[in-house]
Simulated assay, not measured.
Amino acid sequence: MKVLILIVFLFSISANASKRSIKQLRDKITNQSSQLNKLAAQIKEIDNQLGSSNNRYLAKMKDIEDFEKKVEQLKGELSTSAASVSKEVELSKLAFDRYLLEVSDAEVDTSLKAKKIYYEILSKKLKKLKKAQAASNKNLQLINNYEQKIGSIKKEEESLYQFIMELEKRKKEYGQEYISLMEDKNQSEIVLDKVVAKLRVRKKNNLKKNGVLFQLDIPLEKYVSINKTKEGINLKYSQTTPILAPRAGKIVYAGELASYGNVVIIDHGQDVRSVLLGDLVAKVKKGDVVNNKQLLGYTIADLGNVKSLYFEVRKKDIAQNTANWLAKKKVNI
Rank of each mutant, 00 (worst) to 15 (best):
Glu147Gln: 06
Arg202His: 11
Ser188Arg: 02
Thr110Phe: 10
Lys125Val: 02
Gln176Pro: 01
Glu147Pro: 00
Asn139Pro: 02
Tyr99Leu: 03
Val212Asp: 03
Leu181Trp: 09
Arg170Cys: 01
Ile117Pro: 00
Asp184Phe: 05
Ala95Thr: 05
Ser104Trp: 14
Lys204Ala: 12
Ile153Leu: 04
Gln162Met: 05
Gln176Phe: 14
Tyr99Gly: 03
Lys185Leu: 02
Met165Leu: 12
Lys169Thr: 08
Arg200Met: 13
Lys115Gln: 09
Ser123Arg: 11
Lys128Gln: 13
Ile153Asn: 01
Ala132Leu: 06
Gln133Ser: 08
Asn145Lys: 01
Ser152Cys: 00
Ile150Gln: 00
Ile153Tyr: 05
Val196Ile: 13
Tyr161Ser: 12
Tyr118Thr: 03
Lys155Cys: 00
Glu107Asn: 06
Glu177Pro: 02
Lys171Cys: 06
Lys130Ser: 06
Leu216Val: 14
Val201Cys: 06
Ile121Val: 11
Lys169Tyr: 15
Ile150Cys: 00
Phe96Asn: 05
Asp109Ser: 03
Gln187Glu: 06
Gln148Trp: 02
Tyr146Lys: 00
Glu158Gln: 06
Glu168Phe: 01
Lys185Gln: 04
Gln176Leu: 11
Ala106Gly: 08
Lys127Gly: 13
Leu129Lys: 00
Asp109Pro: 00
Leu101Asn: 10
Ile218Ser: 04
Glu120Met: 08
Glu102Phe: 05
Asp184Thr: 15
Lys185Arg: 08
Tyr178Glu: 06
Ala106Gln: 10
Lys113Cys: 07
Val103Trp: 10
Lys128Cys: 04
Phe214Thr: 12
Asp109Lys: 06
Asn186Val: 10
Ala134Glu: 14
Gln176Tyr: 12
Lys154Ser: 04
Gly211Gln: 12
Glu177Ser: 11
Ala135Tyr: 14
Glu120Asn: 12
Leu199Ile: 04
Val196Phe: 10
Gln187Asn: 06
Lys222Phe: 07
Ile218Asn: 03
Ile117Glu: 02
Asp217Ala: 14
Ala134Phe: 14
Arg98Leu: 05
Ala95Pro: 00
Leu112Val: 11
Leu192Thr: 09
Leu129Met: 09
Asn145Leu: 09
Leu140Gln: 13
Arg98Phe: 02
Lys203His: 15
Arg200Gly: 10
Gln141Trp: 08
Asp217Trp: 10
Glu157Pro: 00
Glu173Trp: 12
Glu107Arg: 00
Leu220Gln: 05
Ala95Gly: 03
Ile117Ala: 00
Lys131Leu: 14
Ile117His: 02
Ala197Val: 09
Lys203Ser: 15
Leu181Ile: 10
Leu220Glu: 04
Asn205Ile: 11
Gly175Glu: 08
Ile179Val: 07
Lys171Val: 01
Ser111Gln: 11
Lys194Ile: 04
Phe96Ala: 08
Ile164Gly: 01
Leu142Ile: 03
Ile218Cys: 07
Glu102Leu: 06
Ala197Asp: 14
Asn206Ile: 13
Met182Tyr: 07
Lys208Gln: 15
Leu199Gln: 15
Leu167Lys: 07
Lys198Met: 15
Phe163Thr: 12
Gln176His: 10
Leu199Ala: 11
Leu140Ile: 09
Glu102Gly: 02
Leu207Lys: 13
Leu101Lys: 15
Val108Trp: 07
Leu101Val: 13
Asp97Gly: 00
